[in-house]
Nucleic acid binder design. Sequence first.
DNA 1: AAAGTTTGCTAACGAACGTTAGGAACCAGT
DNA 2: ACTGGTTCCTAACGTTCGTTAGCAAACTTT
Lengths: 201, 201
Amino acid sequence: METTSPTLSRKAQIDQTATALFRRRGYAATSMRELAAALGIEAGSIYSHIKSKEELLHRICFRVADEFMAGLRAANADADAPAATHLRRAIESHVRVLINDVDASAVFLHEWRHLSEPALSEFVQLQRGYEAAFRDMIARGVADGALRTPDPAFATLTLFASLTWLPNWYRPDGKLSPDQIAERLTSQLLYGLAVPDGPAI
Amino acid sequence: METTSPTLSRKAQIDQTATALFRRRGYAATSMRELAAALGIEAGSIYSHIKSKEELLHRICFRVADEFMAGLRAANADADAPAATHLRRAIESHVRVLINDVDASAVFLHEWRHLSEPALSEFVQLQRGYEAAFRDMIARGVADGALRTPDPAFATLTLFASLTWLPNWYRPDGKLSPDQIAERLTSQLLYGLAVPDGPAI
DNA sequence: AAAGTTTGCTAACGAACGTTAGGAACCAGT
DNA sequence: ACTGGTTCCTAACGTTCGTTAGCAAACTTT
């Protein structure tokens, strides 16, 4: 049997292992016995540290949600900056949160629907507010002339799509740093793929 | 073969209902008894028409995969067209397949990992080939000067992100037609959000 | 040394799971 | 009338699920 962990409490270890499993196999398809095996203990033992399986999911989802919200607030702290700058900072913060814990982010993005009420409604409301903030930044950017799009709502969807997809391909050992990823993502979304004044496509 | 009653064989009805349930609740979280209830029959009765739960998932995933592949081949049929045109056509085809059956597409995109071997490996290989084809079109577009990007692989990821996200927001009763969506998506991805020669962001 | 906390075990609970067996209606074509 | 296919039922199978109870070491604090 191992000694108790040096820096990570047993509960934190359980959270971490559960996050990895929920990400790889999905929340519903992950059994408590699987989680226990990954921890090297028996299933019943887990309940010395947590109340239920859903508590694990709840903690993961809302912790990541908090990080996203804090980053959004920071990105908009400088009220005098133009909207497009707010947007770029918000994207960079978002990418940094994603990369900081890819497993937890992936669970946050894909497994939240297995939350039960009332946590589910609370979560959805947070999500809506977050998206609305991005839509608002884009709309303000269009209004002050820095951005153009026929449909800010549509542009927001595309933006979130790219952000949400990130955990699907990001590898911590890749050659791009978080800042590079944020920069490249921002650049491609803002300026597109086509060569200005190039041939029509 | 299809001597059957209304317009949809019972097996097709089961497929359709399963698709909707897998999409809304996830494959692992959907029980055969739930599926039966949605069909108005008992759980055991389903097995007069199918061999296993996974057969349902398998049929959904591979049918959609076939549609994507066929669309890709058609988009590249005109070998003389420039790469950027191939790309635009492939995007439009992709969007049309997605929209043609949003439920099935969502299952295809999110539930395939619950397939077991050897179907899983076969599926992943199809997926890789499809993505490689898009990466190739982008790279050729960059080579012939129609597109620009510091990283074709990165651009491919962003493109797929936007395409994959579509079933998450598309509503059949929305105001945009499939062609409009494809056009708008293509335009935004190719030309970006920023105003040309506008202020730096 | 005593007390409390943390951590883990075994054993089991009721419920839900995917699936099967065997039989019975109904319908079509012969 | 017979046959074969389609459809659905009831009843149950063995398994796995999340979770609990009761107990026992080990470590920490007093």
